[in-house]
Design a binder for these strands. Structure first.
Lengths: 241, 241
DNA sequence: CGTGATATTATGGTATACCATCATACGGAA
DNA sequence: TTCCGTATGATGGTATACCATAATATCACG
């Protein structure tokens, strides 16, 4: 046999990939993970609240095996922590941690934004523009969750356009850990205005391929959020016991 | 009763904390996690190799519950991935991912290093100096693992001195995903020399409180490693199937 | 000799059973 | 009344049992 004829070229391999039938083997565990994570992020469980395994079994209708594996996953993500001799609780966040998270976000998001400003193609720019237009249309409603979703899509576009899936993954994970904080921040006076305004600055810088300006605007965007979060957190005194 | 007399001050609270008896409830799961993670990092399992649950049970002498929870943890860490209809395998790494990891490391480590150069106290500087001296003493042996450990301690000192536990956690996790690559990189000609040299540059910049120089040296340190890793990875053709 | 159907096995997904430990409640004694 | 000891229940840690499915081997038929 002529090996050469059958050796898959890179192009053939790519084409074959589009043939793949994605048969998402939706396991109970994945569904439970999704549900529980969303519940925690949405604030259905408050920070520090105990997550009793058997109770969760009843609430989600699955067995402890599933619950425990899900808890391990969320624990590794940082959304759940296990108190010694007590079991899993919803992770608490104090300002020391939250501040670090904002710091990491600054480091990663400014990098992504600058990269995007250097290399973004037309499609990416159009996508960003669309997201911002939707945001403008919706920001009147002052709906924190809507704005949050649009903000997420904005940054997701920026990260993924540059092929920074891993960094985006990290940012997503960190954001879920400060989800409550983000919602509270967005509910603050003027944040529903200043946030989108900063994002437009970022977009403008990207559109005219100005990495420095994009970086500066991005840093300002996050630092403003961090400042608001700090005032909320220290005034609320949500310290880690 | 006079409340004031019994209200714990911050100082008393701190002193009380040192009284705490840390009773590490060493669970089977934690031990198994440690073992398996180290085994993967050490290359005892090769990338892509299947991790059959029942086999691991025999090898580690624990039940499947434990193994499965450990696998979930490692999966979330990125060290293990589950192939559909096949189960868990040791995560594969291609250059696209490795490059992203080096990028994130650049973003986080340059930030930490700059911060350290701005704020490091004498104790931190002394610690860094000691680590480097040990490294110099050992680098003659060209032992990749020794150098790796010292490098880790060097950066750990930098991150933790600035209170960047979360960022350090992220970096540690990312490094474990490219552990093989790092060892291979260190086995390369001259890397056992150039690496420590770069670290000394970083240290010198920190010692004279020069954030910009520290940042530049750190970026150079990582980018050199990335370049070597790239040549190794693309030549070996370790692509993700 | 090859091809397709069927039996067997391997393997992950899920549920459940058991145990040790810790917290709580209760009761008796000083 | 207070304090201590015991009993009981709640809870997480661990092991095991069962099931569905996919991979593999076997065999019969062309």
């Amino acid at each position: 046999m002529n090996q050469k004829l059958f050796a898959p070229t890179a192009e053939i391999a790519r084409n074959l990939e589009s043939l793949r039938i994605d048969t998402p083997p939706v396991t109970l565990r994945e569904m439970a993970l999704e549900r529980l994570r969303n519940a925690i992020i949405a604030g259905l469980f408050s920070p520090g609240q105990r997550l009793v395994e058997r109770t969760l079994c009843d609430q989600l209708g699955v067995s402890r095996s599933v619950i425990r594996e899900v808890l391990r996953h969320l624990e590794t993500e940082g959304l759940v922590e296990t108190a010694p001799k007590q079991g899993p609780i919803v992770a608490l966040i104090d300002w020391h941690q939250a501040r670090q998270i904002y710091d990491v976000r600054i480091a990663l998001e400014t990098t992504a934004v600058a990269d995007c400003a250097r290399n973004a193609d037309t499609a990416t720019k159009n996508k960003l523009k669309t997201v911002l237009q939707d945001l403008d249309r919706n920001s009147r409603k002052n709906d924190a969750l809507t704005i949050l979703a649009a903000t997420t899509e904005f940054y997701e576009t920026i990260f993924l356009s540059g092929g920074h899936e891993i960094a985006w993954d990290i940012v997503k994970r960190l954001n879920s850990r400060i989800s409550r904080l983000r919602v509270m921040t967005l509910s603050t006076t003027n944040r529903t205005v200043s946030g989108p305004a900063r994002m437009r600055e970022i977009f403008n810088a990207i559109e005219r391929n100005d990495p420095e300006a994009a970086t500066a605007a991005c840093r300002a965007h996050i630092m403003e959020a961090a400042r608001i979060a700090e005032s909320l957190l220290v005034s609320a005194g949500q310290a880690k016991p």
